Amino acid sequence: MAVPDHSIDPRILECAKQEFLSLGYEKASLKHICEEAGVTTGALYKRYKGKDDLFAAVVSDTITALDTETKKRTDVDVHAMSDQQLTGAWDMNAGMRQWFQFLYGLKEGFTLLVKCSAGSSYSNFEHEFVEKMCVGTYSYYREAYRRGLAKYDISPEEMHIILSAFWQTVYEPFIHDFDWTKLKIHCATVNRLFDWYGMLGIPNTDTLP
């Protein structure tokens, strides 16, 4: 029995990634990917059902990393948190820098998802990611509101709108290919733009006993 040749798999994925980054999903050519990887189209189709399946394989590690990080940040028992922890969760200075560092480590895969995925099964990634983040974020907020730490009553729909605007400021620097220096400056700008304490009526952690 012939042993499958997996040595060409990394070449196919790397060439596909560069093709998708350069042209986007819709304009990417499987024929050109095969030519760049030095493989036949038959070899590619033995591994992937088509272009969408190939794109999914290219972003697979990024999706896994995002799901793991999202779960870590949102799958929290907010009822067990102290007031200090609950209000501190809205501190942009630390949290935003961590998010940008994490996403910058996934730069190519994340860029594919927010810039190059139109026409693929991930074309709605930006909206779906906000939906995931909204569930966890809203639970933090509602617990703060229940305890009287948050002054303003925000509906789930309004929180979704706010978070959509917030995450767009995260997507855009990747769409525009910011390097880390520009991204750090942008991070500070986003911190000034989104004053979550003021927006939700939550006291700054420095004011708590």
Rank of each mutant, 00 (worst) to 15 (best):
Y140A: 02
D67G: 10
N93Q: 13
A118R: 13
D52K: 05
H160W: 11
K71H: 09
L66R: 02
E35Q: 09
E128L: 13
L208A: 05
S121Q: 13
F100G: 03
Y145M: 07
L183M: 13
K27Q: 15
K46V: 11
T205D: 11
A2S: 13
I63E: 09
E19K: 01
L23H: 15
E26W: 07
G109T: 07
H176F: 12
S22L: 12
C116P: 00
Y145W: 10
L112F: 02
T205M: 11
G88I: 07
K17Q: 12
E19Y: 01
A37N: 01
I154D: 04
Q18Y: 03
K151I: 09
K132A: 08
I33F: 00
P173R: 00
D77P: 02
Y104N: 08
L163E: 02
E143T: 05
K31R: 14
N124C: 08
D75H: 11
N93S: 14
A43M: 12
K46P: 02
L86K: 02
R147Q: 09
F55L: 03
S139G: 06
Y197H: 06
G201P: 04
G95H: 08
A144M: 05
F194A: 00
M199S: 04
Q84A: 13
G136S: 12
S120V: 01
I8S: 03
T207M: 10
G88Y: 07
F194Q: 01
H186F: 00
S121D: 15
K132N: 07
H32L: 10
Y122T: 04
V39L: 01
K182N: 07
S164I: 03
S82T: 15
R146F: 04
G88T: 10
R192H: 11
Q85C: 05
S164A: 08
H160F: 14
G105R: 05
D206V: 14
D5L: 07
T41Y: 06
R73P: 04
D5S: 10
T205R: 14
L54R: 00
T189K: 10
G201S: 06
D67N: 14
E143P: 04
L13H: 05
E14L: 14
G50M: 11
Y25M: 01
C116K: 00
T74V: 11
G119W: 01
F100H: 09
